[in-house]
Amino acid sequence: PVYLSVKADNSMFIGNDPVTDETMITALNALTEGKKDTTIFFRADKTVDYETLMKVMDTLHQAGYLKIGLVG
């Protein structure tokens, strides 16, 4: 499974590897070998604001990742 996490300080990680807004999709493409039907499990600290969550989800959708599971 692929886990994308947003921490309380808005830092992002794919698994244990830090990513930025600019590198997130490139890292996901490498990890999933470009398979856009891969489910991305998205988790965020409860203090992360809604705007940040939606920005990340919008970026995922624009890149073609449509299977996003929200996890606690």
Rank of each mutant, 00 (worst) to 15 (best):
G15K: 03
L66Q: 10
D45H: 08
L70H: 08
E22T: 10
Y65F: 09
D37K: 05
T20V: 03
G69N: 15
A63N: 10
E33I: 06
L4P: 00
T20L: 03
K67Y: 10
V48Q: 03
S5L: 12
K46T: 11
Y65K: 00
V71M: 10
L70I: 13
F41D: 03
D9C: 06
A30S: 09
Y3F: 11
S5I: 15
T47R: 11
D9G: 09
I14Q: 01
L31R: 09
L53R: 08
D45L: 03
G69D: 15
D58A: 14
T59Q: 12
D17L: 14
A30V: 10
S11L: 11
A8T: 07
G69H: 15
V71R: 05
R43L: 14
I25M: 07
K35T: 05
V2N: 01
D58K: 14
V19A: 02
I40G: 01
H61Q: 10
I40M: 02
R43P: 00
R43T: 12
Y3Q: 05
D17K: 13
A44P: 09
A44N: 04
R43C: 15
M57C: 08
V71G: 07
I14V: 13
S5Q: 11
L53C: 10
A30D: 08
G72V: 13
T38D: 03
V48F: 04
M12N: 01
N29W: 07
K55L: 08
K46C: 13
Y3N: 04
I68Q: 02
M54N: 08
D45V: 03
I40T: 00
F41A: 03
T52G: 03
N16F: 09
D45R: 02
T47K: 11
V6Y: 08
K35N: 14
T32D: 02
T20C: 04
Y50H: 12
G34C: 07
S11E: 07
I68M: 04
T23G: 07
D9V: 06
A8W: 11
N10S: 11
G15L: 04
L70C: 13
I68P: 01
I68D: 01
H61P: 00
S5T: 15
K7C: 14
L28R: 00
F13Q: 05
V2W: 03
D9N: 09
D21Q: 15
A8V: 06
M12Y: 13
V71W: 07
T39N: 07
T52R: 13
E33Q: 14
E22S: 10
T23M: 07
K36F: 08
D49S: 15
P1R: 09
A8E: 09
K35Y: 09
K35W: 07
K46Y: 10
T32K: 02
N10K: 14
T39V: 14
K35M: 07
K55N: 07
I68W: 04
A63G: 07
L60P: 00
G64M: 02
G64A: 02
G64Q: 02
Y3D: 03
E51A: 13
A63K: 02
A63T: 02
K35G: 04
F42L: 15
I14A: 03
T38M: 09
G72I: 14
V48P: 03
I25E: 03
T32H: 03
V48N: 03
M12G: 01
D58Y: 13
F41I: 14
D45S: 06
D9Y: 07
L28C: 02
F13G: 01
M24R: 01
V19H: 03
K46W: 10
K46E: 13
F41P: 00
L28D: 00
D17V: 15
I25L: 10
I14W: 04
M57T: 04
T47L: 12
S11D: 05
N29S: 06
V56K: 04
D45A: 10
D49P: 15
T26K: 11
K36A: 05
A44M: 10
G72D: 12
K7L: 14
L4D: 00
N16T: 10
V2R: 02
Y3V: 11
K67T: 11
K46G: 08
L60A: 02
M12A: 02
M54G: 05
L53A: 04
V19Y: 04
G15A: 05
V6L: 12
E51V: 12
T32G: 02
T38I: 13
G69F: 15
S11T: 13
H61L: 11
A30T: 10
A8H: 09
A30M: 11
T38L: 08
Y50N: 10
V71C: 14
K46A: 13
V19P: 01
T38P: 04
L31Q: 06
F42C: 07
K55D: 04
T52N: 06
T26M: 11
V2H: 02
E51G: 11
G72E: 13
T32L: 09
P18S: 08
D49R: 13
L28M: 05
S5R: 11
K55E: 04
Q62F: 07
L70D: 05
I25T: 04
T52P: 02
M57Q: 04
N16L: 09
Y65M: 01
Y50V: 12
I68Y: 04
K35C: 07
E33P: 02
N16C: 15
D9F: 07
G15Y: 04
M24F: 12
G64I: 01
I14R: 01
I25K: 02
L70M: 12
L66D: 09
S11M: 11
N29Q: 08
D21C: 14
D58S: 12
A30F: 09
T39M: 15
L4M: 07
D58T: 13
T38C: 08
T26V: 12
Q62W: 06
D9R: 06
K36N: 05
G15C: 11
I14H: 01
G64E: 02
A44G: 05
E51N: 12
N29A: 07
D17Y: 14
P18G: 05
V6G: 01
T20S: 09
L53Y: 08
K55Y: 07
Y50F: 11
A27C: 09
V56N: 02
I68V: 13
A63P: 00
V48D: 03
M24W: 07
T26I: 10
T26D: 14
M57Y: 08
G34Y: 06
Y65S: 00
L31D: 01
I25G: 02
L60D: 00
V19S: 02
A8F: 09
L28N: 00
L4H: 01
E22M: 09
G69A: 15
A8R: 06
K67H: 12
Y3C: 13
S5H: 14
K7M: 14
T38H: 06
D45N: 05
K35L: 06
V6R: 04
K7H: 14
N29K: 06
S11V: 10
E33K: 14
V2K: 02
A27W: 10
D58L: 13
P18L: 12
G15S: 03
P1V: 14
S5N: 10
K7I: 08
L53T: 05
L53D: 00
H61A: 12
V19R: 01
E33M: 14
V56R: 05
V6A: 02
A8S: 12
H61K: 14
D17R: 12
A27P: 01
P18V: 08
F41R: 05
T38A: 07
T59V: 13
D45I: 03
H61C: 09
N10R: 12
P18E: 11
D58F: 12
A30R: 13
L66F: 15
T26N: 11
I68L: 06
K46L: 09
I40E: 00
Y65H: 01
H61M: 13
P1M: 09
D49C: 10
T52H: 10
I68R: 02
T32E: 01
D37F: 06
T32Y: 04
F42A: 03
G34M: 05
F42S: 00
D58W: 12
L70Q: 06
K35I: 07
D49T: 14
